[in-house]
Design a binder for these strands. Structure first.
Length: 582
DNA sequence: AGGATATGATCCC
DNA sequence: TGGGATCCCTATCC
């Protein structure tokens, strides 16, 4: 029984226009669903016409000034001109929920020529070209023994569940898109999310209506990690405003651990080059150490109890973002970093000199004494993670549309054991995709990643969240919901429960397995017959026990229940939604 | 309602 | 080495 909450973003300072918008928010079913802006209809598909091509010059010479024009692909239309390659005779773009590729361009999925996305072998069989892991291979007795020893006597990765559905959602929790997620280390139903404006929200996806928002930083919150020390209330946040802050999730009280721009922005002096931003960040639990990568290829080490940088190391090429930092779960001395310099690198922090200057020269040549391995990629590395239990495997997400798997940290001097072609090369405007290990899978094979290109599900274009097997490249499940039409770049499997949280646009969604007997109410099977938003709404309403409207704007008691059968809505309980000062 | 635009990697000149 | 054009899947602002 899916439960949906519409939350207004916490008040941004004191802005007057909030009132107007709260009205439009509160009026009716549109707001419930909150998908009114999702339309990707063909009519809205605007495109840029290419510069004049020889061939088309004569034909269109009389057409007047060529400016931006609407692209509306109609089947059977006469004079077709492709807005992608500029050649006549065909067109590209959405036809209903299906995107037709330009045949003159390489495949958008695998980037190879000779076919389009629709016929791409990687789309038809996601495991195409993928080597099976030795631990799941069936040949030979030795292989079997090895498999038994390495892989818990399992060859087939058990299908996680028959299906998943959105069980709960907070729509418009944030005022900007969600950028990162983190589960509470001990409280099962609590998830934290950061957004593009530096806000951090704490959401109870069980109670659904309970959430807290803090204005923690002034720019994009790139990473949240709990310190796992003391009471489990301290969380660390790395932001593009150049600060690293530790805050208490109960009180919102924060303290600055690091600031890359202590002088602040100085007009005429500060610019994009010298302004420091934090990206990837992780925590050494036992050492009480926070490790954060910045926008200049530096990795900083700090003790959150003492606001002072312990040291910095140029682990990546100067001027390139360190997009991801991960401490090996089995050996805290080993750190994996991903970067815009097209590499992921494994380093031993015991060899730190503590001074960025001393190793900056060697880092760019890849021969720093700190460095254990450098994993070459063909494009920017969005994320590089050790496997969550043994730390023995490595998975990277690269925007060349490939997930790379090394089955052993000792084979990092070779090519990856597997390259899984998967659509996650974001264009603009989206939070970078990051494939995440499922920490509950003892085999360390299950991974979760959102999909960029849409698929036609009964006439609706949806972007599923994919569950894949890192050992075979097999697509195990695609999580989808007709009411979730936006792309889900941020996804995280729960460390203990059968829950996956997805951050999509400004909203959070909690997926749970469909329990037998409950059926697939509200999912695509039902929506497939309906085309318009209105009917989709109907389907959602039918399939749900109750809706709770949560309007954080109006102060304390702003819960309005709607929709029949809504008795279950938790009564007049106050949610603390005021957010911190500032 | 619809255009401008923020935004980021990349490629090309 | 730098500016400008480009990009399928946004979302907000005006």
């Amino acid at each position: 029984m899916p439960r949906w909450v519409v939350a207004r973003p916490a008040a941004d300072d004191e802005e007057e226009e909030e009132q107007e918008s709260s009205e439009e928010e509160s009026d009716g079913d549109e707001a419930v669903i909150g998908f009114e802006e999702g339309g990707h209809g063909i009519a809205e598909q605007a495109g840029e016409e290419e510069e004049a091509q020889e061939a088309e010059q004569q034909e269109e010479a009389q057409a007047g000034p060529r400016k931006k024009q609407k692209i509306s692909v109609k089947l059977g239309q006469r004079s077709l001109v492709c807005h992608v390659c500029g050649k006549p005779g065909h067109n590209a773009g959405f036809v209903g929920s299906v995107y037709l590729d330009c045949p003159n361009r390489p495949c958008y999925l695998c980037k190879r020529s000779g076919h389009t996305t629709m016929t791409c072998p990687y789309r038809i069989a996601p495991e195409h070209g993928c080597v099976q892991a030795s631990s799941v291979s069936s040949d030979g007795v030795l292989g079997l023994v090895r498999k038994r020893e390495q892989d818990g006597r399992k060859r087939e990765l058990p299908m996680p569940h028959a299906g998943w559905q959105v069980d709960a959602a907070v729509l418009k929790l944030h005022s900007r898109r969600c950028t990162c997620l983190e589960f509470h280390p001990s409280k099962d139903n609590i998830v934290l999310s950061g957004d593009k404006k530096g806000q951090v929200a704490i959401w109870d996806f069980d109670k659904v209506y309970e959430r807290t928002v803090y204005n923690l930083q002034r720019a994009l919150c790139n990473n949240l990690r709990f310190l796992h020390s003391g009471d489990g209330m301290s969380c660390c946040s790395a932001s593009s405003d150049g600060t690293l802050k530790v805050f208490d999730i109960e009180t919102g009280f924060d303290s600055e651990v690091m600031n890359l721009n202590p002088e602040g922005w100085i007009d005429g002096v500060s610019n994009e080059r010298n302004w420091g931003m934090f990206y990837g960040m992780d925590v050494c639990t036992h050492k009480g150490l926070v490790i954060a990568g910045d926008s200049k290829g530096l990795v900083h080490f700090a003790d959150p109890r003492e606001p002072k940088t312990l040291g910095s190391e140029q682990l990546h090429k100067k001027g390139n973002k360190v997009t991801s930092v991960h401490v090996n779960p089995a050996d805290e001395n080993v750190v994996l970093t991903g970067s815009n310099d097209w590499t992921a690198r494994m380093s031993d922090i015991r060899c730190l000199s503590g001074s960025a200057a001393s190793t900056s020269a060697s880092a760019s040549t890849g021969t720093s004494p700190v460095q254990l391995a450098s994993l070459a990629h063909k494009a920017v590395v969005n994320a590089a993670y050790f496997s969550p239990i043994t730390g023995g495997k490595i998975m990277t997400t690269c925007i060349d549309n490939r997930l790379r798997i090394w089955d052993s940290v000792y084979s990092t001097d070779r090519d990856p054991d597997r390259e899984i072609v998967h659509s996650h090369d974001f264009n603009r405007y989206l939070t970078p995709f990051r494939a995440e290990w499922d920490p509950k899978d003892p085999n360390e094979r299950l991974l979760v990643i959102g999909r960029y290109i849409s698929e036609d599900f009964g006439g609706v274009a949806l972007h599923p969240v994919d569950l894949m097997d890192a050992s075979t490249g097999q697509l195990l499940q695609q999580l989808k919901d007709p009411n979730l039409t936006t792309i889900c770049p941020v996804n995280k499997p729960h460390p203990r429960l059968d829950v996956i949280i997805s951050g999509s646009s400004r909203s959070l969604y909690a997926w749970r397995p469909i329990t037998p007997g409950e059926g697939e109410e509200g999912t695509a099977s039902k929506a497939s017959s309906s085309k318009s938003d209105a009917t989709t709404t109907e389907v959602l309403l039918q399939g749900s026990a109750h809706f709770v409207f949560y309007d954080a704007e109006d102060g304390a008691d702003e819960k309005k229940k709607r929709k029949a059968g809504a008795g279950a809505g938790p009564g007049g309980k106050d949610a603390k939604g005021k957010g911190k000062k500032k």
